[in-house]
Amino acid sequence: MTYFARDYAVYLLLAAPDAPGLWNAAQWMPFAVAITPVVAQARGGKAAVRSHQYNPKGRSIPFGRLGWNDKSHAKWAHTPATSDARFMSLEAWAPAWTVCEKENQAPDLFLALANESLLGLPGKTLQFSQRLVCAIATDMGDDAAATLRLALAQLATQQQAVLFAHTRCQWGHPSGYGGFTRAIQDMLIGGLFRQDDPHAQPLDAAAFQQTWTRIDLSPEQS
């Protein structure tokens, strides 16, 4: 199988405009704990994390090597004592992107989170405050998929998501030059919406590049 041909269940969560940031430890840690069993089932049982954050002068904040553990989460996640860090984005790969490249196989689990207020729309009235894309390879099995979906549904409820939906697709599509394009890893920034400004139009089917199916968050469904 080529790197990009693996199939995935992909989830999209758009948090309410006034939802607390998922980069806050109080919000992040319960979710991280809930999906840790899925991370543990990935090849090698480990994940690699990278976060882009900036200080008040606009300089990137270095975090060093980050994994999926309490020590690493504590390095990048914000607490009430955090005063000089502006969170922009986060990615988690299980296994690490370097392992995926070496093994020529896309990740078992992928997660990407972005802070909408730092995506070039200063002063804009936002329809949602954060965007989260999470993908799990379909060959990871039903139990892992169910654990992830339940954790995401609980998170969507907690964040009063304006949209929680899923789709199914390959990691990427052949580009015609021996590589691939439209990859899940590029979906979060530039690969979700048809227009540059997703806050200037309704969040209906026409707004998205992919076909998404909304997930019912009523108690009997979630």
Rank of each mutant, 00 (worst) to 15 (best):
Thr2Val: 00
Phe4Leu: 12
Arg6Tyr: 09
Tyr8Ile: 08
Leu12His: 07
Leu14Gly: 01
Ala15Ser: 13
Asp18Gly: 00
Asp18Val: 07
Ala19Leu: 07
Gly21Ala: 08
Gly21Lys: 03
Leu22His: 07
Leu22Gln: 07
Asn24Tyr: 06
Asn24Glu: 12
Gln27Val: 06
Pro30His: 01
Ile35Gly: 01
Pro37Gln: 01
Pro37Ile: 07
Val38Asn: 02
Ala40Phe: 06
Gly45Lys: 09
Lys46Arg: 14
Lys46Thr: 12
Ser51His: 10
Gln53Ser: 15
Asn55Cys: 02
Lys57Asn: 06
Lys57Glu: 06
Ile61Met: 06
Phe63Met: 12
Gly67Arg: 00
Gly67Ala: 10
Trp68Glu: 05
Asp70Gly: 09
Ser72Pro: 05
His73Asn: 11
Ala74Asp: 10
Ala81Thr: 14
Ala81Asn: 08
Thr82Leu: 07
Thr82Glu: 09
Ser89Gln: 11
Glu91His: 10
Trp93His: 15
Ala94Gln: 11
Thr98Leu: 13
Thr98Trp: 14
Val99Ala: 14
Cys100Gly: 04
Glu101Ser: 15
Gln105Leu: 13
Ala106Asn: 00
Asp108Asn: 15
Ala114Glu: 14
Glu116Arg: 03
Leu119Thr: 13
Leu121Glu: 12
Leu121Pro: 09
Pro122Asp: 02
Leu126Gln: 12
Gln127Met: 07
Arg131Ser: 15
Val133Gln: 09
Cys134Trp: 07
Thr138Asn: 14
Met140Gln: 14
Ala144His: 10
Leu148Asn: 09
Leu148Gly: 05
Leu150Tyr: 05
Gln154Ser: 13
Leu155Tyr: 03
Ala156Cys: 09
Gln158Lys: 12
Gln159Tyr: 06
Gln159Met: 01
Gln160Glu: 13
Ala161Pro: 03
Leu163Lys: 13
Leu163Tyr: 02
His166Pro: 05
Thr167Ile: 02
Arg168Phe: 09
His173Asn: 10
Gly179Tyr: 06
Gly179Asn: 11
Phe180Asp: 04
Thr181Tyr: 02
Arg182Pro: 02
Arg182Asp: 15
Ile184Lys: 02
Asp186Gly: 03
Asp196His: 12
Asp197Trp: 02
Pro198Cys: 04
His199Pro: 04
Gln201Ile: 05
Gln201Asn: 10
Ala205Pro: 03
Ala206Lys: 08
Gln209Cys: 13
Gln210His: 13
Arg214Glu: 13
Asp216Met: 00
Pro219Ser: 10
Glu220Thr: 14
Gln221Trp: 08
Gln221Phe: 12
